[in-house]
């Protein structure tokens, strides 16, 4: 179980105004936090900054107290930070099985992982996501939207990350598929103590699996409440989430 701490994080694109300005946020070990907000609130920028994919102007990102600032993306990933990017970031040219094998490469890094253990981990993902098992030799580009998102989530989970960051996993998917994906996510988080930060537009879905909700608006945290309280607060919903 790992804690993700964000301290006074400031991020801007080019010379423009900062997208995130001195953002403070803690995702506690084993917690599932929903990151809510309209387009342009800074959700994607925050997640990408946590992985070092966008340059940071100031502030720190800590994983279990260890400062990640200055580490390249691949080292953050190897330390247990997993991002499922928006738009189903599967490698379209590789097969389902190869995508999963790639995800498992740094599973338990430094703890003497074996290829047998990796194969077993990939097998677990096939049990979790049955459609992937049927299409294991299909190339990523031949998968449907739902299958791709399943694969992206499975590939992140198979690495057994310390903290899982998800960027709009429900984007463009049917409600039934979203419910299924979020259900798997919730069960995995409960079973393994995985720490999750879930950025979503689908507020109802996100709050149904999260134990805390954080509302972002123009790069600032404007609300930070237990998920149930946030879902039940009509004023806040109207003001920032539009329903």
């Amino acid at each position: 179980m790992s804690t993700l701490t964000i301290e006074r994080l400031t991020v801007g694109h080019g010379d423009g105004a900062a997208v995130l300005d001195g953002l403070d946020l803690e995702v506690p070990a084993g917690g599932v936090v929903a990151l809510l907000g309209a387009n342009g609130a800074g959700k994607t920028t925050l997640l990408r900054a946590l992985l070092g994919l966008v340059p940071v102007r100031g502030g720190r990102v800590l994983l279990d107290g260890a400062d990640l600032t200055g580490l390249p993306t691949e080292d953050r990933a190897r330390r247990g930070l997993a991002l499922v990017p928006e738009g189903r970031g599967v490698v379209a040219e590789l097969t389902v099985a190869e995508n999963l094998r790639l995800g498992a490469l740094w599973r338990d890094a430094g703890r003497g992982h074996t290829s047998a253990a990796r194969d077993a981990a990939v097998g677990q993902m096939y049990e979790l996501f049955e459609p992937l098992a049927r299409r294991r030799d299909a190339a990523g580009h031949s998968l449907s939207g739902g299958e791709r998102q399943m694969l992206a989530l499975a590939r992140a989970l198979v690495a057994r990350p310390a903290v899982l960051l998800l960027d709009e996993p429900s984007l463009g998917l049917a409600p039934l598929v979203v419910a299924q994906l979020l259900g798997v996510l919730r069960d995995q988080a409960r079973a393994t103590g995985l720490t999750v930060l879930l950025a979503e537009q689908n507020v109802t879905g996100a709050l149904s699996v999260a134990d805390r909700g954080v509302v972002l608006s123009l790069g600032e945290v404007v609300a930070d409440r237990p998920a149930a309280a946030l879902a039940a607060d009509p004023a806040l919903r109207h003001a920032y989430l539009g329903f």
Partner: peptide, 10 residues
């Protein structure tokens, strides 16, 4: 094929 996705996977 996918440099950024690959970096995200380590």
């Amino acid at each position: 094929f996918a440099p950024e996705t690959s970096r995200l996977l380590g």
